[in-house]
């Protein structure tokens, strides 16, 4: 049996399999189906400084091998998280990481500052890539200048592991990754969803209330894999890979391309226990190929 332990900077993971923000609630939604503490890390729902109601219904459209969503960061705000949700999840024996989003740099700073003081939140994931909020989110992640600026300001106040989640809706994702690395990001996660659209031809109407939304699922996997490969070549900090991972083989592909760890997102909707199956599948792969540790497969692609 191979060793599945792996670190992302100072963050110690019992295995490289984590669940992506917005697809796993606060973890407890899945606890009927499995022991969620077996997962390497849980990225909880995008959290903002104040409560957000999110976008109107319909927020979802099924697409070939994937789905579009336009949830729009519905959450009850960081104070509610700290006072009501954190006490319920802080004892789960895995890394609980909060995904932080905002409309202004001040929002990001204030939210990150509040999360600094939570003992059992070892990291935050700065979401500068949400395509579903008008006034910000992705806007920060699509130019090097604004991405660098928000990371620089948050880095000033946030002392724990700072993960920055990158948008694929850019010309060159490596440039953005380099820009946030230069401002002190400890690692990057990619990709967030790809901006897409769905139309009901019979009604001549868009399916989503917001017209456009974020595409996820296996449809985006080849793009995600390419971007993880490019970014892993460009930066020195660890890369967390995500985008359409449905099984262990997909997860291993991301790690071979250079991801130190991976996140499972949309696949949780099809099989709530998929993360456990991926952990077991990676273990099996290590055995079959004679690797002692999962660390040995990171970037092990032979080109």
């Amino acid at each position: 049996m191979g060793n599945l332990n792996i670190n992302i900077g100072k963050l110690q993971l019992k295995n490289p399999v984590m669940t992506a923000s917005g697809t796993f609630g606060y973890g407890t939604e899945y606890s009927d189906f499995m022991d969620i503490s077996r997962i390497g890390g849980i990225f909880v729902k995008g959290t903002t400084i104040r409560e957000r109601q999110g976008n109107p219904y319909p927020r979802m459209a099924e697409t070939p091998s994937g789905m579009l969503n336009a949830v729009g960061l519905q959450n009850k705000g960081v104070d509610y998280f700290i006072n009501h949700i954190y006490p319920e999840i802080k004892h789960i024996d895995t890394n609980i990481i909060v995904n932080v989003s905002g409309s202004t740099i001040e929002d990001y700073i204030e939210t990150a500052e509040k999360l600094n003081y939570l003992e059992n939140i070892p990291a935050i994931e700065l979401n500068i890539s949400c395509p579903n909020v008008k006034e910000g989110g992705m806007a920060f992640g699509t130019t090097c200048l604004s991405a660098a600026q928000v990371v620089k300001e948050v880095r000033r106040v946030y002392k724990n592991e700072l993960i920055v989640k990158l948008s694929p809706n850019v010309t060159d994702i490596s440039e953005i990754a380099l820009a946030v690395e230069a401002e002190g990001a400890d690692s990057v996660s990619l990709i967030n969803t790809l901006l897409g659209m769905a139309i009901n031809a019979e009604k001549r109407k868009p399916i989503l209330s917001t017209i456009t939304g974020g595409l996820s699922g296996p449809a985006v996997k080849p793009i995600a894999l390419r971007m993880v490969w490019q970014v892993a070549q460009a930066v020195k900090i660890p890369v967390i890979g995500l985008g359409g991972i449905m099984n262990a083989a997909d997860a291993i592909e991301f790690m071979l391309a250079g991801a130190t760890a991976i996140q499972i997102g949309t696949a949780n909707f099809i099989d709530p226990t998929v993360s456990i199956k991926v952990i077991e599948g990676i273990n099996d792969y290590l055995d079959r190929h004679g690797f002692q540790s999962v660390r040995d497969i990171v970037g092990a692609l032979e080109v």
């Binding site: 917005g22 697809t23 796993f24 609630g25 939604e29 899945y30 729902k45 109601q53 999110g54 109107p56 219904y57 319909p58 927020r59 979802m60 459209a61 099924e62 789905m67 969503n69 949830v71 519905q74 949309t266 949780n268 909707f269 709530p272």
Partner: peptide
């Protein structure tokens, strides 16, 4: 229309007097 069915994805909301 739903994705997860268990309250994780927040796709299937309806508008109520208590919000979405």
């Amino acid at each position: 229309t739903m994705a997860c069915g268990i309250g994780a994805c927040l796709c299937c909301v309806t508008d109520t007097i208590e919000g979405h």
